[in-house]
């Protein structure tokens, strides 16, 4: 998993050499790789207990209400310049912190406290 650093452009995002989280491993070696159908597979007891917390987007009223709520929760005074900033200078202040230690897309939902730091640096 990527661990971004508060570093220079050349070392902004570090490549993780091997999967460290269960979700990544499960995806890699339970879903992918050679399968030899004729042979015994180990009884994978316990695998069913592993839930990858990546929410699949389904077009439904529930999803829409959730998005509406998320949009209504936004504090636009804090995020106003984000779209522009992204195009203008692309950050460069260590904001790329991957919250990737959690599985799947859950981390993407966990909000973004980094915005304040970014604003502070913009002055």
């Amino acid at each position: 998993m990527a661990i971004a650093t508060h570093g220079t452009a050349s070392n902004y995002l570090q490549r993780a050499p091997s999967p460290s989280g269960l979700a990544d491993v499960v995806e890699l070696i339970l879903d992918k790789g050679l399968v030899i159908d004729a042979y015994v597979r180990i009884a994978v007891i316990g695998i069913e207990l592993i839930t990858i917390d990546a929410r699949i987007v389904i077009a439904s009223v529930d999803t829409y209400l959730r998005f509406a709520e998320a949009v209504n929760r936004l504090d636009l005074t804090q995020t106003e310049a984000a779209g522009l900033k992204e195009l203008r200078d692309g950050g460069g202040n260590g904001d790329g912190k991957a919250k990737g230690m959690a599985e799947g897309a859950k981390d993407a939902l966990s909000g973004d406290g980094d915005r304040q730091k970014e604003r502070a640096e913009r002055g």
């Binding site: 971004a4 452009a9 050349s10 999967p19 992918k32 692309g90 904001d95 790329g96 993407a108 970014e118």
Partner: peptide, 24 residues
């Protein structure tokens, strides 16, 4: 990847893993 991560930092975050055997 570094360039992308830097450019997109305000709006995206990345997971980057490898080198792996060619599982996919």
């Amino acid at each position: 990847m570094n360039k992308l991560a830097q450019e997109q930092a305000p709006r995206m975050h990345f997971k980057y893993l490898g080198p792996l055997a060619p599982h996919s």
